[in-house]
């Protein structure tokens, strides 16, 4: 399958990317690892006229720690996030989740910024960053914004990113001793979660249980009020809106959310 024709331009810096995007106008799309966008273009579900490649902008790579916060460049690959000593120590949930994305080849190309911007409700990194209570930095023609992750996912494959804005960095708190657990339930090799649960220090986020990654608020509240793991996990699916597909119907997803939340919390102690 061959994508529809387009022009490819490679940005040298974030400023360069913003300029190229504004020159190219509405039909331009940012390209990072291409592991969500290129498959969609091959299926002609997307046909941008211009791709602005941000993956080779030096400033968008790497991991840094400062004043209790870890900052990861948006174009850092899943493999690099999983291997980062800083992430493994300070946000082990994120390193673990990054190591479960797809397969090694996919992790060598896909990026953390691309994964959050794509906002697939079934994906691993959005729920990991949501459970960690992180944030993202975006830069556009109007300047930079810092958006808490709780305000970032806006709808099915939709985010708070404005047209022409580049997600430049992902921030998560550095908490080496936080209790965390991650459960990804999948049936096939290199597949997305049928349901996924990320738990970190009392926050719980669910993958594939709604049109966006969502928090299991009722279960979080039960924990905060001193409920045991069984009781808290029993309300994990409250307020969610899972769908039916080839792999699972909504009712089965609800059961999975409760069981996996229990396992994630048991693992997190």
């Amino acid at each position: 399958m061959i994508p529809a024709p387009f022009d490819y331009v490679r940005a040298a810096s974030v400023e360069d990317a913003i300029r190229l995007l504004s020159e190219a106008g509405e039909d331009a799309k940012i390209l990072a690892g291409g592991h969500s966008l290129l498959p969609m273009m091959k299926l002609r579900l997307a046909a941008p006229a211009v791709l602005v490649d941000v993956a080779q902008i030096p400033d968008l790579h790497g991991v840094a720690e400062d004043e209790g916060e870890i900052t990861i460049g948006a174009a850092t690959t899943h493999a690099a996030v999983a291997a980062s000593e800083v992430v493994r120590r300070g946000a082990p949930l994120l390193a673990h989740a990054a190591g479960l994305v797809g397969d090694p080849q996919i992790r060598h190309r896909g990026t953390i910024g691309g994964s959050l911007a794509h906002a697939d409700p079934a994906a691993d990194l959005p729920v990991a960053v949501l459970a960690l209570g992180g944030a993202v930095t975006t830069v556009g023609r109007q300047g930079a914004r810092r958006i808490p992750i709780d305000d970032f996912f806006a709808g099915y494959f939709e985010t708070a990113l404005r047209p022409g804005e580049v997600l430049t960095a992902v921030h998560v708190p550095c908490r080496p001793h936080a209790a965390w657990g991650y459960q990804k339930f999948a049936r096939r090799a290199n597949d997305w979660a049928i349901v996924g649960v990320a738990a970190n220090a009392g926050r719980i986020a669910l993958a594939h249980m709604a049109s966006t990654p969502v928090r299991a608020s009722a279960a979080e509240q039960a924990l905060a009020e001193g409920a045991g793991i069984d009781a808290a996990a029993a309300s994990a699916d409250a307020g969610t809106d899972p769908g039916d597909d080839l792999h699972a119907d909504a009712e089965y997803r609800r059961v999975l959310a409760r069981v996996l939340t229990k396992r994630a919390l048991l693992g997190a102690r």
Partner: peptide, 14 residues
Amino acid sequence: ASVKSCTVLAAQAS
């Protein structure tokens, strides 16, 4: 690094 070349553009490899 191993990659799936059906999902990389030649342009990206330049």
